[in-house]
Design a protein around this nucleic acid. Structure first.
Lengths: 207, 207, 207, 207
DNA sequence: GATGAATGAGGGTTCATTCAT
DNA sequence: TATGAATGAACCCTCATTCAT
């Protein structure tokens, strides 16, 4: 087998795994690990159940893999963001990116929140990393407080609150559309939402 | 059958239905409608699956009944709160109650959020009522703006944002405990959380 | 307890048993012994399943009782018919009564045919009587043949054939209405059907 | 996979479906759609219930498929029969074939009659075709009447009557054997029965 | 790599019946 | 008599997974 063909095969497989993962995230977002059926995932990915099981070791493995993928994507999302630029600049960028991503890929937020709601049984492995990130962010926030750039707040709760505000529009997209009088398939206005959230947070933090 | 005995029977049944509903909410919170098994609900309620099915028409009926119950409980929760008292007083009370309830009964928030994440297929029936409430609240908020009690904001998004902040600690209780360095079964500090959220919102709304 | 009251109670019970039997025949006609549910019978009789079971020893007993009742009713139906009156007079009367009863009470014929189709597992007990009747009728038919009132035929098959012709319109009432262009709830014309059947048989038997 | 193997697989499946259908017809004949259990069908087909369900979408689908099959088989049965050959020739052939088939495959007639007795809820779809056939046959019969080949009769009822006579020996095989003094597993004499029925009908139709 | 076949466990629900009151 | 409660067995069907080809 030539190197090119082998590369082709690998790429083909990679692409297939991407399709499967996307289908899995969509289904896990709707029904969780227990509630999702491999049949539904296979249907969504456009393949037979048997073929799906050829590519994955088990439903649970697929679930964990999807979680890992989500964590990576979110880490990537904030690469290049600079907390040293000060609270205003950082939070504006962060919230904007986070809200936009949440609105564009609601299944991702939903699957993740589902896992967390269940007590995060499969997320514990990743949390040591998250804890480090949280600690690091807390230090920066405390520096901002020390420099009187923002008023004194609980730095961990601040992070949770921002997380809450930005995730919410992914989880509650249907309800939001309804209450805002939008059509069932109309996109939410990410810019407007990001602006309102940003303003609330920045003003809420003023010294 | 004497009136007393009949009363006893009715009370017994009422109590049993409460047990069942609580078990159901816990399971639906974990696994959604599809993922939850009547066996698990029965186990949690301390009865056989057959006996459970004697008391409910179907799993879906139980699910809808639980949702209805949640909506009622939340409506009750805010009876007596007075929006005419001005933003500071109202928001302080509202957020306090909401956060405390979320932290005390996280399964309730979780089941509800799960339903909403799935596109709220069974909640649509209740939303006309919710829309009215949202509209009414929006009017009050706009009056506050007109009276310069708060700065101009999108009144609907403000409601969503407050909702997001107060629900979050129910959904993410496990994660929050972990990041805050608490024990796995330690209660979250509702007072502290409510204070931080309230402060963020009130200051974020200052004219 | 006075005799009158006791009589009342007995009458009440008798009436109730009639209601139950009618409901049972309707359900057994539709679904057979296995397929019929006591719940459906109870519903049809306007009582709770528990109460139904108070009045009957078991579903199977109810089934057998209904069969016995049907056999009795059919026996009564032909009391007074006189085979000595000769074939024309007898067959005219017999077919007329049988067709009319079949069309008026199709459930009865249907439940009975269902039992027979299943191999008549509960009817065997009654068949010794039936065999006697069949033999007796065969003798009369053979006398008719000997007297040249009708042509030579197999006397048992003749009885079966007449039975087939008269039962058919109970079993196939729906189909008959459809093919005859009648409304779904329109009654079949018993007189017309009886005439056609009678004519076919009488002419078919001419020496 | 080679063409030969694929053909093998298809043939294997076809054969299996035939086995399943035969088992299904036997069970549906005994207990109807509601009363028949997939377990009993599986047992009769010599496979596990799970395996049976691998081959059928649902019990109801199997039921409808079996009905469709029966209708097709009966249509095939009368291919080649020529109504233009005149009443005597046609009716002799028709009754002979029909009686023989009924006696050889009583379950088929029984399942069909069961469906019709229940009001034919799943047969309605096929009845438009049947109605056409009935109409066409009626026209031929009326031509026979006009040509004085048979006496005037209701053409639709004539068809029903013949149907009744020929089906009867499938439905009442057990009873017939008993009344004719045959052993429980002895075959009915199709030739004799067909002759008696034919004679009754042909003579009954003489002008 | 990819397909059809197969399976044991479990899914929600209904069953005829019994029990206590 | 008559009711509500309760139950073990059975109902139809789907599950994630494995096997053979």
């Amino acid at each position: 087998m030539s190197r090119a063909v082998r590369g082709d095969l690998a790429a083909r497989r990679e692409e297939l795994m991407g399709t499967i993962r996307a289908a899995a995230i969509a289904e896990f977002a709707l029904n969780g690990l227990n509630g999702a059926s491999t049949q539904a995932i296979a249907d969504r990915a456009g393949m037979s159940k048997t073929r799906l099981h050829y590519y994955i070791p088990s439903k649970q493995d697929l679930y964990v893999d999807a979680l890992r993928h989500i964590v990576e994507v979110w880490a990537d999302l904030f690469h290049g963001l600079d907390m040293t630029a000060g609270p205003e600049r950082f939070l504006r960028d962060y919230i904007e990116r986070k809200v936009r991503h949440a609105i564009d890929h609601p299944e991702v937020s939903r699957m993740f929140t589902g896992e967390v709601m269940r007590g995060a049984p499969f997320l514990h492995d990743f949390w040591d990393t998250s804890r480090e990130a949280t600690r690091h962010a807390s230090e920066v926030i405390e520096r901002w407080i020390a420099e009187d750039l923002i008023r004194p707040v609980d730095p961990v709760l601040l992070q949770f609150n921002i997380w809450a505000l930005t995730q919410h529009y992914a989880l509650h997209a249907t309800e939001a559309r309804f209450m805002l009088g939008l059509a069932e398939d109309a996109p939410l206005d990410a810019t407007h939402i990001a602006d309102e959230v940003t303003e609330l947070v920045l003003r809420g933090l003023r010294p």
